[in-house]
């Protein structure tokens, strides 16, 4: 045991050392002072939080690439997200971050009742966030606003019928010849693939002489695409850009991973609350409160970026 060696090379506080261990029962034998123990734990937490930043950072890069490739998908699909619910959730997380910070102060000043109250409020905020998120998710699942092929499954029978009619190859000699059974065209159209690339299905091509765009066309192309009917079935929306399902894939991955962090937060804050009610924390020893607080603030930080990037796309 290099107690004397580490003691000598740490800060040179001759007065600290063995006495502290007798005085502070929580001080682990491999630390010289409560402060060394506290700062070491905190540095460890910060290193963990750095890995969290990198973890979410990779997903933010994925978000940027998808948005760079299909910007119109993001401005279109963001209209399916509920800005009000997202905004309420942002405020809930900010307030729970505030109560957590007040809780740390309460622990530091030995106010045990206030600490328990703050932890309970923080816990309530975390659970409230999850409840609101649950309503958002279930609403989207109900409308088949999902990732991958599931996005292109019809929600209702009317949808299915309309999708079949829409995708039916009409008056297209090329398709009729290449298809072994022209009458099977409608049934073989896969609903699992993105909306029809069959340009002939579009009524009257508004165009000038071959290959020349009219002014009207150019204006139409320059107009940004926005969801006209966020309440209606997305499959029947003629304005839906290709690859819209990708928006929902990255939406579920990022908010889902964040949601898992909130669930973990509920667990650790609940654990703190139990410890606080048993009087475990004091102004001498409150490291767990401080470190869980740091974790909870990072969960808040991630949401601070997720909210504008998903809910507030102009």
């Amino acid at each position: 045991m290099s107690h004397s060696a580490s003691h000598a090379d740490s800060h040179g506080h001759g007065s600290h050392g063995h006495g502290d261990h007798a005085k502070y029962p929580f001080l682990a034998h491999h630390f010289d002072t409560p402060n060394q123990q506290f700062e070491s734990g905190k540095l460890g937490m910060w290193v963990f939080l750095a890995t969290e930043v990198l973890f979410f950072g990779a997903l933010f890069v994925m978000y940027a690439i998808l948005r760079f490739k299909d910007p119109q998908v993001f401005s279109y699909a963001a209209n399916y997200l509920d800005t009000i619910l997202g905004g309420i959730n942002t405020c809930v997380l900010i307030l729970s971050s505030l109560t957590m910070a007040i809780g740390v102060r309460a622990a530091q000043t030995n106010k045990k009742g206030l600490l328990s109250l703050c932890l309970a409020l923080t816990l309530a905020g975390a659970i409230g966030f999850l409840v609101i998120k649950y309503f958002e998710y279930t609403h989207k699942f109900h409308l088949n606003l999902k990732w991958g092929q599931a996005f292109y499954q019809p929600v209702t029978e009317a949808d299915a019928a309309a999708a079949k009619v829409e995708a039916k190859p009409v008056e297209n000699p090329v398709l009729a010849i290449s298809s072994p059974n022209p009458s099977a065209g409608a049934s073989t159209v896969s609903l699992a693939s993105p909306p029809p690339a069959d340009k002939t299905a579009i009524a009257a091509p508004k165009m000038g002489p071959d290959g020349v765009a009219t002014t009207e066309m150019v204006e139409a192309v320059d107009k940004p695409v926005h969801a006209a009917h966020p309440e209606g079935p997305h499959l029947l929306d003629p304005d839906m850009p290709a690859n819209t399902h990708r928006f929902f894939a990255i939406y579920y991955i990022m908010t889902g991973l964040h949601g898992i962090h909130v669930v973990i937060g509920v667990g650790v804050i609940g654990w703190l609350l139990v410890g606080s009610l048993r009087g475990r924390y004091s102004s001498d020893y409150y490291t767990p409160v401080d470190l869980v607080g740091l974790y909870w603030h990072v969960v808040d930080l991630v949401w601070i970026f997720l909210f504008p990037l998903f809910y507030l796309i102009h």
Binding site: E39, T90, R105, Y285
Partner: peptide, 28 residues
């Protein structure tokens, strides 16, 4: 009571930070 370790942040700073965050949320 003084904390044995760490820094004590005044209530005014905590509440001001929370208020600023809420205001910025409304702005965004």
């Amino acid at each position: 009571a003084h904390p044995l370790v760490g820094h004590l942040v005044p209530y005014s700073t905590l509440f001001a930070t929370g208020a600023a965050l809420l205001v910025l949320t409304v702005i965004t």
